[in-house]
């Protein structure tokens, strides 16, 4: 591949990703009550690509499989089916040793609750220095402490904060520490799993702006997971809307907000409070997300969909030109 082609090829390519969880009762309970095995398809046949230096956002209600996708991408979970291709390399079971370490250095994750994602018994310096230690062989040799000081400054903390423990910080500062740790090994890809939803609203914007600045500065690629549409609008270049483990719609951020096509996306956007709409009644999101253990047949959204017809009850819609909807496909909406 030439440099130009590498430049154009996506950094992350997710193909037909599925993950099934076994949620059956223990064996003995099952035998006694005569119940069968139970599975949840938390993620079902999800495909998307993430371009270099861009932000791909995944939005959806709770239970839509957002976090599961994040964990599948970074390798905390193994996919039941499907492939994840990172910069032309298949992330599968086959990666071992130095090769795996080299690849791991390139991706990182920022978690929802920084209080849980930072070891409470470690000083902040040690937390930020951990990736430096783990990837010492793949990094230019430098004083790790100097780099820690640099990283602390980069995220807007002072070097003196290095001796403190995570519980001595506020939520926003803790998330800054988590970001510093994620950046320590100079990754080019970061999965952000609702990085601001545990924070005060006043702090959210600061963290989001910090993340945007860092993206511009280091050419980072983000997969950004959120249930907050305003946050996503601020951050994302491209958005995937998840419903019950399947992608309902994928589109450029601007297009998705201006001309939502899938009925579910429309419903979500109609529900977003808007300062220009003050006084006018807002349309509520009708119904609730069904149980993933017993999903409705056909299109999972059909019980809540105003455009539902007989075909929607039977047939699962495929993602065609960024929308998975029979009604759109048939030109009914």
């Amino acid at each position: 591949m030439t440099d130009a082609e590498t430049e154009r090829s996506p950094l992350l390519d997710v193909r037909g990703l599925s993950r099934r969880f076994d949620v059956s009762q223990p064996w003995l309970n099952r035998k006694l009550s005569g119940a069968g095995k139970l599975y949840v398809n938390a993620v079902d046949d999800v495909s998307f690509t993430v371009a270099r230096g861009k932000t791909f956002a995944l939005v959806g209600e709770s239970g839509s499989g957002k976090s599961t996708i994040a964990r599948l991408i970074v390798g905390l979970l193994e996919p039941t089916r499907g492939d994840i291709v990172f910069d032309g390399i298949w992330l599968g079971q086959g990666l071992k040793g130095a090769e795996a370490r080299k690849l791991r250095r390139r991706f990182q994750m920022i978690f929802q609750d920084p209080l849980a994602s930072l070891n409470p018994r470690w000083r902040v310096s040690d937390i930020i220095a951990e990736p430096l230690r783990v990837f010492a062989r793949d990094m230019p040799a430098r004083d790790p402490l100097l780099r820690v000081g640099e990283l602390l400054a980069l995220v807007g903390l002072s070097a003196e904060d290095g001796v403190k423990f995570p519980h001595q910080f506020s939520g926003g500062q803790r998330q800054r520490v988590a970001i510093a740790r994620a950046l320590a090994a100079r990754p080019d890809f970061i999965v952000c799993d609702e990085p601001t939803s545990a924070l005060d609203v006043s702090v959210q914007a600061q963290i989001l702006n910090l993340m945007k600045d860092l993206q511009r500065e280091f050419g980072l690629t983000y997969v950004f997971i959120s249930h907050n549409l305003q946050v996503v609008r601020h951050m994302a270049d491209e958005i995937g809307v998840l419903y019950l483990g399947r992608l309902a719609e994928v589109n450029k951020a601007k297009a998705l907000f201006e001309t939502p096509r899938h009925p579910y996306t429309r419903m979500l956007l109609d529900a977003v409070p808007d300062i220009e709409m003050t006084g006018r009644p807002r349309k509520r999101v009708e119904g609730e997300i069904p149980s993933p253990i017993d999903p409705p047949p056909g299109c999972a959204f059909h019980p809540r969909c105003p455009f539902m017809n007989e075909r929607c009850r039977r047939e699962i819609p495929r993602l065609v030109e960024g929308v998975a909807c029979h009604a759109v496909e048939e030109g009914r909406i």
Binding site: L145, G149, L154, E160, G162, V163
Partner: peptide
Amino acid sequence: PMTTRQIEPVIPPRPP
């Protein structure tokens, strides 16, 4: 990438 913004590196103090 560190060269794009000038940050005066400060070594964090040692724990007490």
